[in-house]
Simulated scan of single mutants.
Amino acid sequence: MYLSIDFEDFAHDLKRDLGLWETGPLRLDALWQSYLTIDAFLARHGGPDGRRATFFCTGVIADQAPDLIARIAGDGHEIACHYHFHDEMDRQDVPTVTRMLARARDALEAASGQPVRGFRAPKFRIDRSAPDQYRAVAAIFGYDSSFPTGDLAELAAFRRAAGLGDFPILPIFAGRFRGKGPALRLGGTYLKLFPQAVAHDLVAQARGAGFAPHIYLHPYEFAADGRYTLSATERRPLGWRKAAYWGLRQAQWNRIGNDGLSGKLAALIGAGGLAGRLDRDLAAASGAVPDAVSGTLSGAP
């Protein structure tokens, strides 16, 4: 089982999504506290192979907090890319995407002092209706982890149709609890809000379908004190209705279920620990035998 972290500043990114600013200062104390909490969790529960994990970091963090990126890398974790800003790529044109990918990679490599191989699109929002955005990713990075699916054959068909050749795509499993209801991804809000049985069922489904189970989480999910919450003053320019809505909605990410996440995650990992950094074995992380990374997917043993 793999664990990766989409390392982003929720407050900064929500203000950008809501049109409150283009960019601004990050909540650096909150990001540092969250990183130390995550690193301590890995030390306790990662096991001999999973003490170190992959952090998909936004480039804006490398710009404003290069010392934090350097610390994560110095502790032995993989620094991967989560775009420059936490924007929905499928709403952007290819020249913008290409520019932001390169900008983020350069900032992360300068801060970490190491090559940045991996990429994950914010919110998994990368255009899969045409190959151009994925080809832009493949031209800059060594692998991608932006493809939620419950079927490895679907991933293989997409790779062939997009002409991606040997470019590795490490999927996030998405399945329906006991075969019913909407598709749920293995991680994020789905993990912390739903009962433990849902996560165990998704992990079992993933393994049965040939996936290496791969959980993704965020810094704010390891905190329940509201450190990434936008204040009433920050929300005031939205108007009272929208400000009130987002005041309540933030609880979904910043408070509800956060207190119990670490215990739930530790139980899910179990005594076997985690598999470690994604870049250490791309074939294993893809959930298939080595020819999977070249597009001929077959189930893992």
Rank of each mutant, 00 (worst) to 15 (best):
G226K: 00
G24T: 05
D201C: 05
D17V: 03
P95W: 12
A138F: 04
F55Q: 02
A206S: 01
T149S: 12
G247A: 14
H86I: 08
G257I: 06
W240P: 14
D291E: 15
F56D: 06
K15T: 11
Y83G: 10
P48Q: 12
P213G: 03
G47T: 07
T58C: 14
D106P: 00
W240I: 14
S262A: 15
L238P: 15
K242H: 13
R99D: 08
Y2D: 11
A271K: 15
D225F: 10
L238D: 12
T58M: 12
R91D: 12
A224Y: 11
G150V: 10
M100L: 15
L230C: 14
A102C: 08
D166Q: 01
W253C: 07
D6G: 10
P115Q: 09
Y2C: 09
A111V: 03
A40Q: 15
A138D: 07
L191N: 02
R120I: 03
D281R: 02
H200D: 15
P95L: 09
R277L: 08
A232P: 13
W21K: 12
F55P: 09
A288F: 01
I126S: 05
S145Y: 12
S286N: 12
A30L: 03
A121D: 09
R52S: 07
R255L: 14
G142N: 00
A65H: 08
A212C: 04
N254E: 13
A209E: 13
Y83Q: 09
A104S: 15
R207I: 11
G187W: 01
H218K: 09
P148A: 10
L248R: 14
T233E: 15
F55V: 02
D166Y: 05
F147N: 02
A107Y: 04
